[in-house]
Design a protein around this nucleic acid. Sequence first.
DNA 1: TGTACATCAGTGAACGCGCGTTCACTGATGTAC
DNA 2: TGTACATCAGTGAACGCGCGTTCACTGATGTAC
Lengths: 210, 210
Amino acid sequence: MSDDLNSVKKNLNGDQIGARSGRYHHGDLRAALIAAGEDILAERGVEGFSLREAARRAGVSPAAPAHHFGDARGLLTVIAARGFERLTETMAAGAKGKKKAAARVRALGQAYVAFAHAHPAHFNLMWRRTLLDNDDPALQAAAGAAFAMLEEAVTGAAGGHPKAPAPSVVAAWSIVHGYALLILDGAMPDPGAAYLDKVLDRLLLTDRAD
Amino acid sequence: MSDDLNSVKKNLNGDQIGARSGRYHHGDLRAALIAAGEDILAERGVEGFSLREAARRAGVSPAAPAHHFGDARGLLTVIAARGFERLTETMAAGAKGKKKAAARVRALGQAYVAFAHAHPAHFNLMWRRTLLDNDDPALQAAAGAAFAMLEEAVTGAAGGHPKAPAPSVVAAWSIVHGYALLILDGAMPDPGAAYLDKVLDRLLLTDRAD
DNA sequence: TGTACATCAGTGAACGCGCGTTCACTGATGTAC
DNA sequence: TGTACATCAGTGAACGCGCGTTCACTGATGTAC
């Protein structure tokens, strides 16, 4: 997780340029705090996140983050938006080259669940609306892009959302979302990708009009 | 929420028997703490729960709950198990009299989502495994009963789980679970029961063998 | 090219918060004889 | 029927915790002239 930001962090704070590590200005504290926050999520989960700990890991005083994110909610919102962006990237990579609707839906569903599995705390944060600034445009845009990708695969049409989404689209989103969470929350053991394909097939049985 | 327990609480602590309210022994502190905990959940959500606050509402010192539940996790586990019991009751009531498989699946799905909608914090707690004692037999039994009800409706066969559940069962559970959470977490506005029926119809398109 | 100065990005100490849990204790209950 | 006593279910003060945020401040940067 946070590979790109970790490399920035390493360049600025790491051993190689240790001579610069005692300086007053950080260089790219914003990126370092995001990377630290994502690391904390991965290690301790959403409940284990704290702004102080992120500051600590970035090598900075507890008051420093306020200059970049306002408060804890601000940092979490940025991290959540990045999560949606990565989810979209993961789905795009999974569906790359798949032409048929059925193959695309299976690939997107697999990618959705795989993302949740690979980054459980990050995935959870994305839905913890009480911890986020839900009005943030970047967050809304990132979440909307992920949804649009599913929608396009299921209906074959691009978004724009003049009307409410079709039930088949909501069914697809619900099924991958519910499946991912039931596994993450320990309601059932992970039955594996082949099993998930069979579950996703339930979305493909007919093309009945909605 | 917690109507039965509230009545106990009222009888023991309420105005009508106020003369007894100064006594040393509570009478049914266990039930009062459960009721208080459920009230806190309803008012403040899972994050807003605290054992001290439950004790406060039960009119008791902060150390008292330890005698009945050990620690905070113990109380939350009991409350979560009660949640599963009520979910099962809600589904049973919704499906009562429905004979056909399609009607039963729709009714159970509607009940599942309605329960989540009516008791969002309670529903959320039920899946917050890090807050619960997942090895608790009562919790496991209650969760298993809810799942078995869905399973029976989808496959027509009673549980016992000699083998892994069929993909169609997991699909049903995933779709209602995901749908409920997407709405609770604000990912989409609630489109209403008629819309949900159309989503659930995706589970009923054919009876293809799994 | 040099200098004044506004602005920005940090410091670090402190505040107040509510929490879960522990501790030594005591009042009430109910059972054995 | 009365009494001794073990057990149970409470008290309330205290501890230590880490948190988010505020505060007055200062070091570094970069721009205007």
